[in-house]
Write a protein that binds this DNA or RNA. Structure first.
Length: 458
RNA sequence: GUGGUUGUAGCUCAGCUGGUUAGAGCGCUGGAUUGUGGUUCCAGAGGUCGCCGGUUCGAACCCGGUCUUCCACCCCA
């Protein structure tokens, strides 16, 4: 019995047009990564479980796809664990491998393993799929691509400035205007937690603060209370809810709030330097915005935190994120290596560009030239011409069968082919070929012996 | 992982309180047009109503389960 085919939830097939559009984004990102001096690496799709587990928090562990061991794995489990029916204790005994959850942790592992071959500072980029056992939504998949660029082994804040410029350069090149690059600093968040006396509740505090734009001031306060943050502490933090004005103005407000906190002031100083330098260099189409409520990736970020949101009129989560992590490689035994990086969410950028109609029509063009097939003799002449064009790198093909012209023209039209070449009996006799410009509807005749006359315009 | 939502032709969607052969637009195929697509006209093909089970004389419609989509939470690209 034939089964109805399907693919797992949260995964997708990509048609030729979709692949072309995805490649267009990838090529643009790749080009800029390389222009900025990053070098590509690739890592395996799956890692040893212990490399990934525990690096993304409890929530992260739950979302990691585990790979079942091969062979008779269940007989190797001891009876106590087996009969406990406890997933948490059974899982590590039957799954030694897991699918990559992001590109940053595998990169940290890579750096530690190859530390003796690497020239620091090491600037690498990596464009590969990652997997998360999340419940899918719009713009949220179980298999998706991340495009990461990171620098390890350099503490200078110049890197942060460059990453902001890199974001701006890529989004400008893609024609994606009006993106907002939000920036914050983990040290500022630590400072605030310290000043209000909730140092031990930093994560709870920041996770709640992060929701300000979503659930409002009252909602945030309520959540903080629920997490055990005292009312007086929340009161002290209240200036945060009313932060406004330019980045510089907000920094001034932060300075007065954080005078007592050494770490907080260090964060303010970093933000100050980064924003000043970005402002001095200027951005083309993106906007840099200080956002003290931004609190992503706290499991490893230690300094700057970035998040990019799509233009306002598009409903989409962040299309990029990143930050500085002072000791990511520490967990793998390599101390004192600072890293900072950013990530582009290919699939979400795709959805945003599709919604805003930003893909150039040339992206989905399959070939440049299609020759109509009029029969054996004629198509041989066409093949000859096509070979000349292919030698010049022009994408050209001959329609494979001698069907009616209407059908061939329709085919060219629906495949978005800009030029159709006609070599029929008449043309063959006169050693000519006719080129129809599909967009204009115009036709022009060229000599078969002098095809350059046509091809040099392409 | 929790709560909800969606599924009808290739696509976008109609389909009355359950009632006979389930419709439209677009697309597709053929013809008007034997050397001209994108415009026009005519004709035609195409559907186990997501899947499994139940209620009923009778189910696209009601009930249960399941898969999928999307949404909120969680978290995140």
């Amino acid at each position: 019995m034939a089964q109805k085919p399907s693919i797992p939830k949260g995964t997708r097939d990509f048609s030729p047009t979709e692949v072309a559009k995805r490649n267009y984004i990838i090529q643009t990102i790749k080009k800029h990564f390389e222009v900025y001096g990053f070098q590509p690496i690739e890592t395996p799709s799956f890692e040893n479980s212990e490399t990934l587990m525990g690096k993304y928090g409890d929530e992260g562990d739950r979302l990691i796809f585990k790979i079942l061991n091969s062979g008779d794995f269940i007989s190797k489990v001891d009876d106590v664990t087996y009969s406990s029916k406890n997933s948490a204790s059974l899982t590590p005994k039957i799954t030694e491998k897991a699918l990559r959850y992001d590109l940053t942790v595998p990169f940290a592992r890579y750096v530690v393993m190859h530390q003796n071959e690497i020239d620091f500072p090491f600037k690498r980029y990596q464009i590969q799929p990652v997997w998360r056992a999340d419940r899918p939504q719009k713009g949220r998949f179980r298999e998706f691509y991340q495009c990461d660029a990171d620098v390890v082994g350099a503490k200078s804040l110049l890197q942060e400035v460059e990453f902001v410029q890199l974001y701006d350069a890529v989004f400008t090149a893609l024609g994606l205007k009006g993106t907002t690059i939000k920036i914050n600093n983990r040290k500022v968040l630590s400072g605030i937690a310290e000043v209000i006396g909730a140092k031990h509740l930093l994560i709870d505090f920041t996770v709640a603060l992060d929701k300000l734009d979503k659930i409002g001031e009252e909602g945030v306060k309520k959540e903080m209370l629920a997490k055990g943050i005292s009312e007086s502490a929340i009161d002290k933090a209240s200036p945060l809810f009313a932060m406004s004005g330019s980045s510089m103005e907000q920094l001034e407000q932060l300075k007065s709030l954080l005078v007592e906190s050494e770490i907080g002031m260090a964060g303010v100083a970093e933000l100050d330097e980064i924003t000043r330098n970005v402002e001095a260099l200027g951005l083309q189409s993106a906007q840099l915005q200080l956002d003290v409520t931004l609190a992503r990736g706290l499991n490893y970020y230690t300094g700057a935190i970035f998040e990019v949101s799509a233009p306002e009129d598009v409903k989409m989560g962040s299309i990029g994120g990143g930050g500085r992590y002072d000791d990511l490689t520490g967990i793998f035994g390599l101390k004192d290596i600072s890293g900072v990086g950013i990530s582009f969410g290919l699939d979400r950028i795709y959805l945003v560009m599709e919604e805003l109609n930003l893909f150039p029509s040339s992206v989905s063009k399959s070939v440049d030239v299609l020759c109509v097939n009029f029969g054996n003799q004629e198509s041989m002449a066409a093949l000859k011409l096509v070979n000349q064009m292919r030698a010049k790198g022009i994408k050209a093909e001959v329609y494979p069968t001698n069907t009616k012209m209407q059908k061939q023209m329709k085919y060219a039209n629906s495949r978005n082919i800009p030029y159709v070449v006609l070599i029929g009996a008449q043309e063959l006799e006169q050693e000519q070929f006719v080129v129809k410009d599909m967009a204009q509807g115009t036709q022009q005749t060229y000599s078969l012996g002098n095809s350059e006359e046509f091809t040099e315009h392409l």
